[in-house]
């Protein structure tokens, strides 16, 4: 029989031994176990998201015909406006291609837009992420940029068989190379601690001294296109305050992100064009 003192410490000895054993397990085994545990939970969360969609469908069915007619009319107006924009876009695109050919510039690889429904939103103080309902089955790859109508959502962090995990731009670990609208000098954007009951926020560093922004006159912050992940000119947020940093060489400040970021139901993944869908 073990002495009483050792017997009492048995839970902690076991904990220490388990930790030691865990450190010795190869990373590939841990990786496989992690994927297995995630895939085990994925069908439950996905089913719950389908149930939510069904709830939305039935709640929409209760709307009157007049409301539907009004909504249809609004959509038709928007479609007409977008058609005109598309024609302008096509003309501008052909002009850019002509100039690229003349100047012999390298043509950047395009993206395939893959819309996806949101399965889960996770907005903790430690991280912010989304789980979306598309994964390897739609050719989504790790690092793909994710956008929505209001701009950048984040970047795909993990891809599983039928789902993917997206790290949001508000997450403290997320960094993006950005520029102030109308400027070409790069700024470093980073996610920050998001206040309770408030819109998501971020911070900027290395802002040039001649860039100004106040809450009354915010400055739009867009992706720079540097780094090759995000296409240029996508809205990140609005700089609401910039102040000279302690070294006096640059400014740093706060960024207000789109308030819809924490209530997203659908996003678009920009998959590199050479990645076909297996579906």
């Amino acid at each position: 029989m073990l002495p009483q003192r050792i017997d009492q410490a048995k839970p902690f000895l076991t904990l220490g031994l388990a930790l030691l054993a865990w450190l010795l397990i190869p990373t590939a085994v841990k990786r496989m176990t992690r994927t297995g545990f995630f895939e085990l939970q994925a069908p439950l969360a996905t089913t719950a998201s389908y149930v939510r969609d069904l709830q939305d469908f039935w709640s929409l069915k209760t709307r009157s015909k007049n409301e539907l007619i009004e909504a249809g009319r609004d959509v038709a107006r928007l479609n007409a406006a977008y058609e005109s924009r598309l024609q302008q876009d096509a003309a501008l695109r052909s002009e850019i291609e002509r100039l690229e050919r003349i100047l012999k510039l390298p043509i950047p690889a395009g993206h395939r837009a893959e819309p996806a429904r949101v399965v889960l939103r996770d907005f903790s103080s430690w991280w912010q992420q989304l789980v979306i309902r598309k994964g390897h089955n739609y050719g989504i790859v790790v690092g793909s940029p994710v956008i929505f109508a209001g701009g950048v959502v984040g970047r795909v962090r993990e891809v599983y068989a039928y789902t993917s995990v997206v790290e949001l731009i508000s997450s403290p670990g997320m960094r993006i190379a950005a520029v102030a609208e109308g400027d070409t000098r790069p700024i470093s954007y980073q996610g920050a601690i998001n206040p309770t009951y408030g819109p998501a926020v971020g911070v900027v560093e290395y802002v040039p001294l001649d860039v100004f922004a106040t809450p009354a006159a915010p400055r739009r912050l867009v992706t720079s296109g540097l780094g090759g992940v995000f296409p240029p000119n996508l809205t990140i947020g609005y700089m609401t305050k910039v102040e000279a940093s302690s070294d006096g060489l640059f400014k740093s400040g706060d960024v207000r992100l789109d308030s819809a970021l924490s209530a997203l139901n659908e996003v678009t993944v920009l998959v590199p064009a050479d990645r076909p869908s297996t579906r």
Binding site: L40, Q41, L44, A45, A48, L120, R121, D122, F123, S124, S125, N194, P195, T196, Y197, G198, A200, S262, A263
Partner: peptide, 22 residues
């Protein structure tokens, strides 16, 4: 697994108010 599912759904709705339960 059941508890993780329930808490995941709760957090999904609480995300709108930037609140998270763990």
């Amino acid at each position: 697994l059941l508890l993780a599912l329930v808490l995941g759904q709760l957090n999904h709705y609480l995300a709108m108010w930037t609140v998270h339960v763990w």
